[in-house]
Design a protein around this nucleic acid. Structure first.
Lengths: 105, 105
DNA sequence: AATGTATATCGTAAATATACGATAAATATA
DNA sequence: TATATTTATCGTATATTTACGATATACATT
């Protein structure tokens, strides 16, 4: 038991739920905000602004990367992350569609 | 370890991440859609349209209820659920704010 | 009162998420 | 080449999620 049944649902529902999952931890929401606020977006300064250990921040970055909400560019020994506007726009569109469908606004 | 650190984040980030968590499974997105499509919204007919056991659907309903996205009204031995537009609007507002902040649309 | 119907809750197994220290890998600098 | 810096990954502990069958609860009907 407890094998997932996500394949039993519509493709778009699965995709949107996956985006929602990526946003389902305050650390990841904060990371997106910080990446926007800073001009530079190296992991080091990101970690400085987060109440979490470096390994944990790295893990959260991985989750955001997984769904394509951010992408990282290697810059010497450092990595510079930024928000992926394309995915963001797709997510916004899908969310708007859902909210309209279920009677909001 | 693995104790949560969610309290270390801003209140609104925690709230929004919690809404996102509620939307982070396709079953729950589908439930919201079904509740909107049907005029009636009894758990029984909901379960009929879901590829999950009754106990599992009930669990998903509980999660949606937890964050206030739906509320249930007891009607005899049955329970009628409907989407809570208030919470939905609040969520939409918070999401829009986030998306605008992080550079979308 | 007994039985049926509808839903929630309990118990539980497996999977996934969260957090961290330690370490690896990759580059830069002395 | 040795050392420092930066980030990802590994290993691991604990918590949470997902799924279900079984059972409890609450109301209706016979």
């Amino acid at each position: 038991m407890a094998y997932t049944k996500k394949e039993k649902f519509a493709r778009e529902e699965v995709w949107l739920s996956d985006i929602a999952k990526a946003l389902s931890h305050p650390a990841r929401i904060k990371i997106l905000k910080i990446l926007t606020d800073m001009d530079s977006c190296m992991v080091g300064s990101l970690v400085d602004q987060m109440p979490l250990a470096q390994a944990t921040v790295s893990q959260h970055l991985k989750e955001l990367k997984r769904v394509g909400l951010i992408s990282g560019e290697i810059d010497g020994p450092k990595v510079c992350y930024c928000v992926n506007i394309r995915t963001l726009a797709k997510a916004k569109f899908a969310l708007d569609k859902l909210f309209i469908k279920i009677g909001c606004c």
